[in-house]
């Protein structure tokens, strides 16, 4: 398969086409993932998430520069929401990543969420697989931490950094969004603004109340809370260091293997679910449409209708 070979060889055009293919989730995308899968699994995948406006793209830019100084090749996937009205999207993350322009050791790809929860997570995971197979050692996945989809994407990462900013009232946005539980590292960006130290203190207090995270070996991980000023590159080296320490912890504690196992299960389960759904649609698509009408007209309840459809669709 030519495209996969080119990707593995690091051909940038092929990488770009490959990501488009997996994003489309066309049948050929599965073949591509199949061909790339054995070559992936070497990269450390870092999820960067947080509310809109906290400076994620700027942070990713600064972090990527830091990795580049150490010689690691960096792949970046930046996800922005699609418009629920038109399905289109404006993807503006590159604006804040202009420092990375012209560096062949960096590959930046913008992705739109395309409105489909499970689909987004899968497309993102597959895009990461493409970059991973192409030899990028660190892959940064930037998402807006607002919904379930983003949490799913973050779960596909080895290390999740949750980004905050001070001064947005007493609310800690990460807690509201349910992101504290998935954070391996917490970053208070715009750390020169009023209330930064307070935000750090509040986060640390919240974390001290959470049950300790203990890996299979008995080692514990306490998510560090770091201050950064991404626009000035301040606090970025400590962040990279914290990410590296988390990677070492995953290795040392056996937690990484456990996570990989869970991740594999999730991905497989989802693939099975989707395959079943597609098969079901192929067999009972027209009956499904008719059943929808009957549920709408309250001639039947959804549960009974589902039972009937599945019974009829069984081979």
């Amino acid at each position: 398969m030519e495209l996969a070979e080119l990707i593995i060889a690091g051909d940038r055009r092929a990488i770009a086409r490959g990501i488009s293919l997996v994003e489309s989730q066309a049948p050929a995308a599965r073949e591509l993932v199949a061909a790339l899968y054995p070559h992936a699994g070497r990269a450390h995948i870092v999820g960067i998430t947080g509310a809109p406006g906290v400076g994620k793209s700027t942070l990713v830019n600064a972090l990527a520069l830091d990795y580049r100084r150490r010689g690691a090749r960096v792949g970046i996937v930046a996800v922005d929401p699609s418009s629920p009205f038109s399905g289109g999207a404006i993807l503006g993350d590159r604006i804040r990543m202009r420092d990375l322009a012209g560096d062949p050791g960096v590959f930046v790809r913008s992705m739109a969420s395309r409105g489909n929860l499970g689909g987004l997570a899968r497309a993102t995971v597959d895009a990461v697989t493409v970059l991973d197979a192409a030899g990028f050692e660190t892959i940064l996945v930037e998402t807006v931490g607002a919904g379930q989809a983003e949490v799913e994407i973050a779960q596909a990462a080895h290390t999740v950094a949750v980004v905050q900013v001070p001064g947005m009232g007493d609310d800690i946005q990460a807690i509201k969004a349910g992101l504290l539980e998935i954070a391996d590292v917490l970053v208070v960006n715009k750390g020169d603004q009023d209330g930064a130290d307070q935000a750090v203190a509040v986060l640390e207090a919240m974390l001290s109340l959470a049950p300790p995270r203990v890996g299979p070996s008995g080692d514990a991980w306490t998510p560090p809370v770091l201050k950064a000023i991404a626009t000035q590159g301040a606090g970025i080296a400590p962040l990279a260091q914290a990410i590296a320490e988390h990677a070492a912890y995953l290795e040392r504690s056996g937690q990484g293997q456990q996570n990989d196992q869970a991740r594999a299960a999730r991905e497989l389960h989802q693939a099975v679910r989707e395959a079943l759904w597609e098969r079901f649609l192929a067999q009972a698509g027209s009956e499904l449409a008719a059943a929808v009408q009957r549920v709408r007209d309250r001639q039947i309840d959804p549960y009974t209708a589902a039972e009937q459809l599945l019974r009829d669709a069984e081979p």
Binding site: T58, I90, G92, I95, R96, T231
Partner: peptide
């Protein structure tokens, strides 16, 4: 002083 980076897009 450094340089300003475009602050906001769309």
């Amino acid at each position: 002083f450094g340089e300003h980076k475009e602050a906001y897009a769309l």
